[in-house]
Design a binder for these strands. Structure first.
Lengths: 117, 117
DNA sequence: CCCCTTGCGGTAGATTATCTATGGGAGTAT
DNA sequence: ATACTCCCATAGATAATCTACCGCAAGGGG
């Protein structure tokens, strides 16, 4: 009997940042779901945990919005896998979201740091 | 005909951070809703926008969880206002959420900064 | 006195995102 | 064949935020 759905600062992913993380991961090249998740987890030093139930819906909405495109391929383990790559629009979106992220972090940190000037 | 509910990196507040912002604001002393919202907006240099429809539910849940306590008072403008103050548990929670926030920011930034060592 | 604006609290409903918990199919190893 | 792993996928629950309302009271202008 599970309790929580998606608690904010106790969850595995900060809501609203998963899309950004996926887009950034795909900058390095096309990849399929498993690889993307592992890349995010590894590069975050296992602080971030990407659940499958969050990952695939995220991939679908990113594709629907045109930020990424997919094609079927074969994984390193010889499994059928759906690969995703960044589109031109996705690259642009990544730039925007990165900027927005940095603005928000700066803004929040200003609130957290009481008067420092 | 409303448009969108709560878009992630396009909204006014990063989902999951409002509680933290409120708790931090109350460190400086008790305050009522309007004051809290204005404080967050001002200290973030107007990057963050605290909507009433987000603020009051947030205050209620924080109180319900025991992080803050409330009492009725009179505002600077001679209006009846509900003041909130940090509880001892709230102070502790603030410390935890601040740490969690910093961990998450570091983790996400590691993902955003491709290989820098 | 009446009205309108402002300050202040509050809630309902919609939208979105994430998590938990499933399921299935297809390689691989035993 | 059986089990196990890899990989994709979806349903349902939960939570948080936003938009858009609603009340009430104080103050100012006519």
């Amino acid at each position: 009997m599970p309790k929580r759905g998606a608690p904010p600062l106790q969850g595995e992913i900060l809501p609203g940042t998963l899309d950004l993380l996926i887009l950034q991961t795909l900058v390095l090249g096309a990849a399929h779901g498993h690889t993307i998740a592992h890349a995010i987890e590894h590069r975050s030093e296992d602080v971030l945990q990407v659940e499958h139930g969050s990952l695939y819906p995220a991939l679908h909405r990113l594709e629907e919005r045109g930020w990424i495109a997919s094609f079927w391929g074969t994984s390193e383990n010889n499994r059928k896998a759906r690969y995703y790559r960044l589109t031109r629009a996705g690259r642009k979106e990544l730039t925007q979201q990165t900027g927005r992220w940095q603005d928000l972090v700066r803004a929040i940190n200003r609130v957290l740091r009481p008067a420092e000037e």
